[in-house]
């Protein structure tokens, strides 16, 4: 290690390190501080106990958990199937066009995608109103009834997010050597057997990456229920998800300690998932 070089190493990383401290480490520490104190006095786990005891807390956990299960299952099944199909399409332009169509909704995120789906889910203007009406829904409010929400949020998230993953899986499939595929074909394996015995095992690392990322993102559910709540006059409850509840604690109840407690719970989940992945997964073996 060269001392002069190493000094410049610090200069080069200084700006980024400052931001990392200011918007990564410091907010985390401050939220931990808030979560364990009340008006400046240390109160142990009181804030957590209070928040967990809130009648809205467990339903919010259940809502988010159910949504995450639907979302992960549909993502893993359909992304893998679609990637395999697109990969198997021999006509080059057709495969390219399909991937392009699948991933373009990824451009529409956040509030914009929820707004677009407000229209799609409203039978009076929807492009698929016939489908909605055939399922017995005649108004937006009936479509987004609380029982339907995990499916509704899954559809929205799948629409915006699946294409990117399909493109990633497709890339991974392309990396499987042609010799192996050819050997399987000569041994008489059909497309389904090849997919099951050769392609799927090669994808597992990417599937677990997708699963972990989506699980972490799914627990953060906020903008979808927030905007649907606004559009339906709280038919969709404003305390549907954990992040919404944390938001209400801070903004409605002026209870920053309670808000911080919920945030810490969510942050621990996200940090736990990503740390496990970095240290156990082989995807980011950098050194």
């Amino acid at each position: 290690m060269n001392a002069g070089q190493s000094r410049y190493g610090y200069v080069f990383v200084s700006g980024y390190t400052l931001l990392l401290l200011a918007f990564g480490l410091l907010p985390t520490l401050y939220a931990i501080y808030l979560a364990f104190t009340r008006n400046g006095a240390f109160v142990g786990f009181d804030n957590f106990v209070r928040v967990f005891g809130d009648y809205r807390f467990l339903p919010a956990v259940a809502h988010v958990a159910l949504y995450v299960v639907y979302w992960l299952v549909s993502l893993i099944i359909f992304v893998v199937i679609l990637a395999l199909i697109v990969h198997a399409v021999r006509v080059r332009w057709l495969g390219n066009a399909a991937r392009f169509l699948f991933y373009i909704p990824g451009a529409i995120a956040g509030a914009s995608s929820v707004l677009l789906w407000l229209f799609v889910l409203d039978p009076s203007v929807s492009p698929v109103s016939a489908l909605l009406k055939s399922m017995g829904y005649d108004s937006l409010v009936s479509v987004v009834a609380v029982g339907n929400l995990p499916v509704v949020f899954t559809v929205i998230a799948f629409w915006a997010g699946a294409g990117g993953w399909i493109v990633i899986m497709y890339g991974a499939l392309n990396n499987i050597s042609g010799d192996i595929m050819e050997a399987a074909r000569i041994d008489g394996a059909g497309p389904v057997q090849t997919a099951w015995h050769i392609q799927l095992p090669m994808l597992t690392k990417w599937i677990s990456y997708m699963g972990i990322m989506s699980l972490a993102a799914g627990t953060q559910l906020f903008v979808e229920p927030k905007i649907l709540a606004q559009a339906t006059k709280n038919v969709v409850p404003e305390d549907y998800s954990l992040n919404q509840l944390a938001y209400l604690y801070a903004f409605r109840q002026n209870d920053f300690s309670g808000s911080a407690a919920i945030s810490i719970v969510l942050l621990v989940v996200a940090l736990g998932l990503s740390t496990i992945f970095i240290f156990r997964g082989r995807l980011f073996d950098s050194e």
Partner: peptide, 16 residues
């Protein structure tokens, strides 16, 4: 590690 946590996870702490 920070790259892999969803950016929403830090929003409320950053707000606070």
């Amino acid at each position: 590690i920070v790259m892999l946590i969803p950016n929403t996870a830090l929003v409320l702490p950053i707000f606070l």
